[in-house]
């Protein structure tokens, strides 16, 4: 029997992002659609950044997770439009990011506070960080550098 689309969404919610394993690929907002096309399940995935090397790993992880659940006719569709935006990050994921040490994106263009000591006395080091989706910031109180998830 074919699992329902909702069930597949639930399964995908357990697939961690390879770079930031505390959030899932669904939390990140990069799974754009799940549908049955005859006996083939099609999962539409959009890259966060066009050159993000995690994209192919994510597609492979999704395929592996669905195979582990017994599906074997799987098609991963790479979809670039509409382009991914950090607004698609799920609300629950923002708290998980903060706890993990990554300040979540904010419309104001910078982190609300230091993920470690919660000080609001923070400064940007660079718009670019350890992955394309992050910038480097530093806390001016505890002095720790930290990642900030960029707004795009």
């Amino acid at each position: 029997m074919k699992p329902s689309v909702d069930t597949i969404w639930d399964w995908l919610a357990d697939v961690p992002d390879p770079e930031i394993p505390v959030i899932s690929v669904v939390d990140l907002g990069i799974v754009r659609g799940v549908r049955w096309d005859g006996d083939t399940v099609e999962v539409a995935v959009t890259p966060t950044y066009s050159g993000c090397p995690a994209t192919s790993v994510i597609s492979l992880d999704i395929e592996t997770a669905l195979r582990d659940r017994g599906l074997d006719d799987i098609r991963i569709k790479n979809q670039i439009s509409p382009p991914w935006t950090s607004d698609w990050l799920k609300e629950e994921a923002r708290a998980k990011l903060m706890e993990y040490g990554i300040a979540p994106p904010r419309a104001a263009g910078g982190p609300e506070c230091c993920p470690r000591c919660k000080s609001t006395h923070v400064a940007r080091i660079s718009q670019f960080g350890s992955t394309p989706c992050k910038a480097q910031w530093q806390c001016k109180d505890c002095l720790e550098p930290f990642d900030y998830f960029k707004c795009i």
Partner: peptide, 20 residues
């Protein structure tokens, strides 16, 4: 180091755009 990372990220974006 920060500039090294920024340059690498910029290059990566451009290679990604190239693929499209």
């Amino acid at each position: 180091l920060e500039e090294d990372i920024a340059l690498a990220n910029t290059a990566l974006d451009m290679i990604g755009q190239t693929q499209m």
